[in-house]
Design a protein around this nucleic acid. Structure first.
Lengths: 318, 318
DNA sequence: TCCCGTTATTCCAATAATGGAACGACACTG
DNA sequence: CAGTGTCGTTCCATTATTGGAATAACGGGA
């Protein structure tokens, strides 16, 4: 029956607040979309027309939007080339946001320590509106693939964001699995479902490397430069279908020796006992033996625990 | 005749882009206003009604605005207390904005060095839509008055923002002086006018301490907590009228021994040869002799020059 | 516990923003 | 140097958002 799916979707929407549903063209959303788009490309500059295309605006609307934002220094405008990028006001606002979330600075400190100890790439990301947003990055700057650049956004789809999902609300879990279902073999889907309790029990998530993970990375990274059109989503969905069980969650750490570990993640909890953000370690050597991996994971969890503690977070009861 | 004033105002508006004029209730502006308000109070949390009052919105509009922004993690919502503050997405966007403005990190480094050397409070601020926005702060954290907190905003009025004005466009100068004119004695106004070429020649601005400066600080600081209503502007205007010539710009450094220096500022130029932001030193000891003040100023200018150079800025030809 | 002031949320008519096209300007190219 | 495509800007009727009041849900105090 199709009914169940519909009910789930409605529940999720009611949960979120139904704003995105009833407002097909919310002006607030457009402002945020412009900022999100520009934040995903911090070093580039875009013309009015480019931005209009990327966020789906008419030139006329984009013109007033960008002019207004530039007037307030939310965007900085390069007069010569008529291009826009994030403005200085956002620097101030970003600093203020950090001041309001003590966890961020603590996380940065711990991630830097972690990156130095393990000589790996460490980052933190949070969940924003069905997307994963990179908040902090420490360690070897700008990996060869430019994989995780602060401000970048990726859709919440396997195999990323598992910590957000594993400790998230039931509706989020249902949504996550629901989005993956059409593209996964039944056995792999079951593996994904079973992975969540395991992640909760272990306290961290670990994904194996492999052709699916690599291809997925490739697409997601290169795709961050382009519009998320139907072709993009088709590719993403195809890639999800190609993921192996180990690439979704590595149950048996011994199997890591085959292809290595793609990433490990551990959650940081907020005072409200929800996942504030997750700490991620990537760029692990491929020749790590299970013992080393276990040690890395424990070190990562320790860092996450420190951050949780210092920001007065609480581990959810269950 | 009144005509001249009107002409000036129209010129200024045409300059800015006339967006703020023709759009009495621009939805983009409202988003920015909410962010600006929350950024000015990074550590506090506000209810929907409070925010609606402060930015001048109806509860209904504020509700959808805040809900939408919270859904995208532009605001974080405290479910228990139903309060809002800046969200994690803004952390990412702020980091991205910093990545796009190389000058910021260089400025932070130089300001930190400066603060350490001089044991004073150093900050950087930029001009945004007729307001001064604090971008960076280094040195003794949170002065006794909480004078300059990152994200805070102050109206562009004497005696602040002189570097922005002195090297700014003629329309900005006219606007600045025009706004001050109604509240200043003619002689003081002349002093202000004459100060701008002096600042350009010296390469920095320096204001003396005194009753006017102190009172002004007091009002501006305490006022950052409240709505900018008519009463607020009346007080600001009164205070501007009370400023002495030395409090606007200290022509003779020897006179500093009387009351000390309120602040010193030097401009950092962008590649387009405009003022990107200004570096400010505050919290100077009151017992500095003119030689020491001169040395401080030169050290400040050196820092500004380093930042300008490293971000490939150009000093304006004139 | 109840009450009361405040707050969050929903709804609809009034209002202001939007999108599309047309214009003017620019840069690039052959 | 002219042609051509793209870009930025302006304009107006259509359309979606806004503001205000009514409603519901708190939360603090006695």
């Amino acid at each position: 029956m199709m009914c169940q799916g519909v009910i789930q979707v409605n529940a999720a929407l009611a949960m979120v607040g139904a704003v995105s549903l009833s407002d097909p063209s919310n002006p607030t959303t457009r402002v945020m979309d412009v900022l999100k788009f520009l934040a995903a490309h911090p070093t580039e500059r875009f013309t009015l027309a480019e931005i209009a295309r990327h966020v789906g605006l008419s030139n006329g609307s984009a013109h007033r939007l960008l002019t207004t934002m530039a007037a307030g220094q939310f965007l900085s405008r390069h007069e010569k080339h008529r291009t826009y990028s994030l403005g200085l006001s956002l620097v101030a606002i970003g600093q203020a946001a950090i001041a309001g979330h003590q966890g961020i600075e603590i996380a940065r400190r711990e991630l830097a320590r972690l990156a130095a100890e393990l000589d790996m790439q460490c980052s933190a990301n949070c969940l924003a509106d069905e997307e994963i947003v990179v908040l902090v990055k420490e360690g070897r700057p700008q990996s060869h693939l430019g994989l995780t650049r602060v401000g970048e956004r990726r859709p919440l789809m396997p195999p990323v964001g598992l910590c957000h999902v594993a400790w998230g609300e039931q509706t989020l879990i249902d949504d996550y699995i629901g989005k993956a279902r059409p593209f996964m073999a039944a056995s792999v889907l079951d593996h994904l479902r079973d992975a969540l309790p395991l992640i909760r029990a272990r306290g961290y998530a670990v994904c194996a490397n492999g052709p699916g993970a690599a291809a997925s990375r490739q697409v997601l990274v290169t795709a961050s430069d382009q519009v998320r059109d139907d072709a993009y989503w088709t590719r993403v969905h195809e890639l999800i279908g190609q993921l192996s069980a180990d690439e979704i969650q590595l149950v048996d750490l011994a199997r890591a020796e085959e292809a290595g570990v793609s990433y490990m993640a551990a959650p940081v909890f907020s005072p409200a006992a929800t996942v504030a953000f997750q700490l991620v370690v990537t760029g692990l050597p491929t020749d790590l033996d299970p013992r080393k991996i276990e040690a890395c994971a424990q070190r990562l969890c320790a860092a996450a625990a420190v951050v949780t503690a210092e920001m007065h977070g609480r581990h959810p009861a269950g």
